[in-house]
Design a protein around this nucleic acid. Structure first.
Lengths: 146, 146
DNA sequence: GCATATATTTAAGTCTACTTAAATAAAAAG
DNA sequence: CTTTTTATTTAAGTAGACTTAAATATATGC
């Protein structure tokens, strides 16, 4: 039914669709909240890392430590991040999401995943089974280091 | 093997993984090229639309027409976009990607899809078949209006 | 312990994406 | 044909994310 040669293309198309929608929805969500993209990307980095220092944010976002420090500071003042001293190295800071910040990110996910959930609801049990199987395969294949 | 109840979660996780990687890689690519995110998003919009006017860009990006006009102008000067008069309405402009601009976007896709292609290469024929089937189901389920 | 290296912050200034307001020009309405 | 609306551009100015440079404080190496 599906030509094996076409898998690469359809995988790309699928990833492309998902990415395009997610980015569009995310951009709208960020804007509606009054955040800038850099601010939101920083929050997302903290979300994925659970906890990280200014240096990590600086490297990851490819900006100076000064810039990272300033952005963090704004988000701390807004109550979205918490900044504490690293007990192992008192020069360093540990940045984490506040409950308010976490809630914000999670609402963002809900927003980004609305169309996914919608799509999922419209699948038959048989389709659901097939898709589930394929997702397990893909999840396994995509284990990688960040 | 796969609990139907878990499909929603694993679908979300998969979309999340794909989106996260794609955004990260895209952000790096954009930066390496010296573009700003707004500039790149505008190029992407033109790419998806093939052709569009200033008003469309303005609405889609939620900025004023003046801002859209200015950004387009920079990209035209850089040789990434072409701006011509709309023959049906001489007030309006038609913006399209130049060959240089299209090449840039397509290289960006290659960059964003490197990990997808890599993953695909490591699938067995049987897995490939299953994934292909699931992708067809998802592609069908996600037909939607933009 | 002293010199050096590292992590972050603060201050000052730059750059640019954005805005509003006004100008231009063509289409649509009457 | 005149008036009004629509599409875009230009000019001037604002805001904020970024930079460099200097300050502060802690950790590490000899």
């Amino acid at each position: 039914m599906t030509d094996p040669i076409q898998i690469k293309t359809s995988l790309r198309e699928w990833v492309e669709t998902a990415t395009h929608r997610a980015m569009r929805d995310q951009a709208r969500y960020v804007k509606s909240l009054g955040f800038s993209m850099p601010q939101f990307f920083l929050l997302m980095r903290v979300y994925y890392r659970k906890q990280c220092g200014i240096s990590d944010l600086s490297e990851h976002m490819e900006i100076t430590a000064a810039a990272a420090s300033q952005t963090v500071d704004k988000l701390v003042q807004g109550g979205f991040l918490e900044r504490t001293e690293d007990p192992n190295d008192r020069r360093a800071k540990q940045v984490t999401l506040s409950p308010k910040g976490l809630d914000l990110i999670e609402r963002g996910f809900a927003e980004r995943f609305r169309w996914v959930d919608e799509m999922e609801r419209n699948l038959s049990d048989e389709d659901r089974r097939k898709v589930g199987e394929a997702l397990a395969i893909l999840a396994e294949a995509s284990r990688e280091d960040d």
